[in-house]
Design a protein around this nucleic acid. Structure first.
Lengths: 327, 327
DNA sequence: AATGATTAGTTAACCGGTTTAGCTATTGAA
DNA sequence: TTCAATAGCTAAACCGGTTAACTAATCATT
């Protein structure tokens, strides 16, 4: 800017006014504006956003903290967040927590120091204190996919309970009595709700049987899922269907169903919480729940930007997921 | 910093020296260091990285430009890049190009203005001029997955030709004569090489037949892949196997093979370039090529950081992919 | 006593923008 | 002719760090 000013015999301030589009209000002549813009072009001037940020206190970038971007769900979510942020002219810094509290903390600290304008994050078990740090700074924040119940902050999630109840009921109405559930035993409200939606519905129809509930330890999942499938196959009272509470459990579960020679859907039907891109390579009918990932990502950004622009009401959305069927 | 300095009757400079760890060289007393650090803690001082960046000219963040982070391959790649960058203390800003030249250009411009320390990017067709902008700024850069042949810059890619030739040969040696290929007609060297690896190998064995080569237009892929499958099914000289040149083509292709009642592997075997997380839900044997995504991501970061730290030799790695088999 | 070396810390410029008070010259009205 | 209003621009502070150059005091050495 100084170079442009020197070349035109103007001051740095004037050049800044023109280039930042604030020339009209402060009345810089049409002529000068044209010359400044032309010279900037000629000299291939590119603004230094860092300097601008320091001055304005706005970095024009937002932080996104997810569990693991290589996971189909979070990859999709992040994609939609990025595309929406792009529309608002915001840049996105993404970090993975790998479900670790320490990494979550590091991510938050780092983003705060980077003077980020807002944060969209997927809560990590035990991360309330860390999240409070964001609130204390009065930094706009939106939780996605999960939320801390005691935190006064915006969130946008899916009604896990409701859709799980619905899909269970759907299967019951189709004539299934013996529906099993396979779910991680992790203490995430999303997972608890999916499991509970199933349990309450089965109960309501008087079909609940604890031998149909298979809780899987995350660390030892391959083995435990395999065992769960074998158990269900050998259940004295024939099992009609299995509800897998998440993507990965479904993939591993179906694999072992194949290995055990369980025919889908003749022997058992399968339900999957989450859509998988490649359902169609499995030549079987699959009932699945499709979360509105795109809407969730877009809306999270919308809410965040509103807050960045001054809104200070907390928005908490609970979206409905859809029940679908492959093949 | 000024506040800390005031409270202790020191100068801002001294506080900066202590807090940035340069106190030893500039000899600030042990006592003063301790007091500064303690007071910083008490006042909950957090450095403003933006200010630091402006001053040092280093933003401690790198840009990553991929095609589409929601794609399993790029999601994985980005994940490994982020994890490795974290180790070096670098933050990652990710952007998607959606294979669009314009978006690629916007991303580069934006990252340059953000005073990023280096860029890792997946080339976009026609993006040579845009990439030159990075080079002209003498900004460290690493291309991944693809590369611009005429650009003097580091890259790290997989030997698409070689592994495609190998997998074709493997199938031939297993007794297959009529191997087809289904590939996008996009002008990406990665895809061209996969196709060519197949063609040259078939040729070498005297098995090449152009009715076995199916080029798919990206925009109309669903329909064209379907038609390709039907064509191959009806090929007068029975087709033994199909080599799908990428993930998505494979998924769509296998779907239509199922629909057409083609039995895998009895009627035809299938080959997929790229590993898919959920291969196991398809109860069929699949020959696939697994790219060393983790290594590619990690190495890309290593090379970039080396360059950021002053190395100015161009590194060009061609990694080997592995041939594997599901079930 | 003079000199040099060392220790401990200060000063002030600088990074590259933004922003606002205020200055000057011109125009228009009284 | 005089004064106010306005247009057009400048000067300088500011954002929050970093760092080269400098000062001042102490200690060791000759």
């Amino acid at each position: 800017m100084q170079d442009i000013a020197d070349k035109l015999g103007l001051s740095k301030g004037t050049v800044s006014l023109v280039l930042s589009g604030k020339a009209r209000g402060s009345r810089v002549s049409e002529e000068t504006c044209r010359k400044v813009r032309q010279t900037a072009e000629e000299m291939n001037y590119q603004p230094n956003e860092i300097a601008r940020s320091l001055s304005t206190g706005k970095s024009m970038s937002i932080g996104v903290i997810v569990t693991d971007i290589s996971n189909e769900f979070f990859g999709n979510l992040t994609f939609h967040i990025q595309e929406q942020a792009k529309k608002y002219g915001y840049t996105v810094i993404t970090t993975n927590t790998n479900e670790s509290l320490e990494e979550f903390n590091d991510a938050v600290t780092n983003l705060l120091n980077k003077q980020i304008d807002g944060i969209i994050f997927v809560p990590v078990v035990g991360g309330e204190k860390v999240a409070e740090k964001i609130i204390k700074r009065h930094l706009p924040v939106v939780q996605v996919d999960r939320y801390f119940p005691d935190m006064k902050a915006s969130y946008i999630i899916v009604d896990n309970y409701k859709v799980s109840a619905e899909i269970t009921e759907l299967l019951i109405k189709k004539g299934n009595r013996r529906i099993a559930v396979v779910c991680y035993d992790i203490d995430l409200n999303a997972l608890r709700e999916r499991r509970q939606g199933y349990i309450d519905t089965m109960n309501r129809y008087g079909l609940l049987d604890t031998t149909l509930i298979k809780d899987i330890n995350y660390e030892d999942q391959e083995e435990q899922i395999k065992q769960a499938i074998i158990d269900l196959k050998n259940n004295p009272d024939k099992v009609d269907a299995i509800f897998f509470c998440s993507r990965r459990v479904f993939i591993t579960g179906v694999k072992h169903m194949h290995r055990e020679g369980i025919k889908i859907p003749e022997d058992m039907e399968v339900l999957c919480f989450d859509k998988i891109d490649s359902f169609s390579i499995a030549n079987i009918p699959i009932h699945y729940i499709e979360q509105p990932i795109g809407e969730m990502g877009k809306k999270a950004v919308d809410i965040l930007i509103e807050q960045i622009n001054g809104a200070n009401d907390i928005k908490q959305y609970v979206l409905d997921a859809e029940i679908k069927h492959s093949i």
